[in-house]
């Protein structure tokens, strides 16, 4: 039953991720029919817990962050910071009884660069494994 219900994924991604231009973004939004909301960020380090919280509060069942591979951040430490903020936000949602799996992070691989579309598929798969968010139901 839960698997058939609609899920909404908020996907924040570093613009360094391969094949993540405006064109690809539009293609993905079309493909997932609004089940994925895509937010390009110049650097994942610019994300704050409030962005993740507001997504969870307002529409998302799950939030994912796709970062560039470790060691390749053009602002040197952005993806490291993103990791810390994800951890902090997970602590916050855990404190009110929301599953920490509702905030996910995928760190790109330097050796095996993965396109935005592939990341989106992986994140959506994981999203569907979770029941709909108790925040919106």
């Amino acid at each position: 039953m839960t698997g058939e219900q609609k899920r909404t994924l908020a996907l924040y991604y570093c613009q360094n991720v391969p094949a993540s231009g405006e064109r690809e973004r539009q293609d993905l939004e079309e493909k997932y029919g609004g089940n994925i909301r895509l937010f390009p960020v110049p650097c994942s380090g610019r994300l704050e817990p409030i962005h993740l919280l507001l997504a969870l509060e307002e529409f998302a069942d799950v939030v994912y962050i796709i970062t560039c591979p470790e060691g390749t951040c053009r602002y040197s430490e952005g993806n490291k910071r993103a990791k810390k903020r994800v951890e902090m936000t997970r602590t916050i949602i855990a404190s009110i009884g929301l599953e920490v799996e509702r905030i996910g992070m995928i760190i790109g691989s330097k050796e095996n660069p993965i396109s935005l579309a592939d990341h989106a598929r992986a994140a959506m798969e994981r999203t569907l494994r979770l029941p709909p968010s108790p925040v919106h139901n």
Partner: peptide, 16 residues
């Protein structure tokens, strides 16, 4: 920033 986070967290908790 922290005020926005706390308010959002409390709203999420209330909605849940």
């Amino acid at each position: 920033k922290e005020t926005a986070m706390l308010a959002s967290t409390l709203r999420i908790a209330a909605k849940m």
